[in-house]
Design a binder for these strands. Sequence first.
DNA 1: GGCAGATTTTATACTGGGTACAAGTTTATT
DNA 2: AATAAACTTGTACCCAGTATAAAATCTGCC
Lengths: 190, 190
Amino acid sequence: MRLHISHLATNLFMEKGFDNVTVDEIAAAANVSKMTVFNYFARKEDLLFDRNEETLALLRTRFAARTQAPIPALKAFVLDLVEAKHPLVRMTPPIAAFWKVVADSPALREHTRTMAAELERDLARMLAAAVGQPVDPLAKLIATLLVGTWRVAFRESLRSRSWWRETFLDVIDRGFAAATTAARGTAYVR
Amino acid sequence: MRLHISHLATNLFMEKGFDNVTVDEIAAAANVSKMTVFNYFARKEDLLFDRNEETLALLRTRFAARTQAPIPALKAFVLDLVEAKHPLVRMTPPIAAFWKVVADSPALREHTRTMAAELERDLARMLAAAVGQPVDPLAKLIATLLVGTWRVAFRESLRSRSWWRETFLDVIDRGFAAATTAARGTAYVR
DNA sequence: GGCAGATTTTATACTGGGTACAAGTTTATT
DNA sequence: AATAAACTTGTACCCAGTATAAAATCTGCC
């Protein structure tokens, strides 16, 4: 049911743009009342980003299974995503279309920032836990640097559909090198 | 007039919290109609962050007058702010109270993220212009790393009112070292 | 002073996301 | 079948923000 509504809504968003579809419209298309939609999804934005939680879970799982120090492990994780052509880094036309919907809506762009902020907080907690310490400024700094690196690399890979690999990997390389510098001499790097 | 309304609104926000003050209320307090308020301020959030543009202008001015490479110059700029006890880094009780209003409102927290994103874009442009190049992925990455560093340092200085200096400067040190690593071998560092 | 024209302010009415609440409907349990 | 629990819905509401056109205020000019 939740999936049904979310799917329907996503199609409408792709057709007409996020801001040009009202929740009433979505509810009508699903033969359901507006209240029911808000019952399943706290905000309109969640209709599109329903799978965000899965991504976080994937990160947590992979991080928990790591065999290296936190920062190298995270870099290896990102490189694995590229190698495996995971949807998060594989810019097929439908995926590019999805992100175009996001890029075209101010509300959705703001929402991605909120998600990034939550990711930063989560990652800081994970990093701190990995070295057995409370969440301190250094953990927050590293989390911010890494999430920022990811954001830039991701956006660049969206901008140019072909030949993005080189740029993407260069940004990842430089960003992780930067985080490594910030964390030099701590357990985060080795 | 704009200042009058903004001042009045800020006081109301400090008293009751951003989300518990309606624009109608502000308009009434200023003996003015709601439309007039929106005439001066495009969004409710702008009533509080009216001076954001000034800060950006300060950054641009200082950056234009720099004598060092971009990244060292920006670090010197931040250290100067600390030295001069600029309001941006001096956490007096009224300033802390102001930021508590922000911290207590989800809408305002989102707004700060939007401002940070705009700052990132601006800084990327400034960096690219400084080395005579179009805005490329590296400029974006450095801008993101530096703004992220600033955000973390700033938030930490808010968290603990006394003895914040050491932590603040440590985060700045590590963050700028990280950005320097990301930019190694380019004109951004020297 | 007084008039014409531009600018500002205002009232009114609307859109749309989101909440509160209470009543109705379905589904599961015994 | 009866009752409780969970889900769904209608209705009414709040508030930010927009559109539009009328009214008030200010401006330069004679």
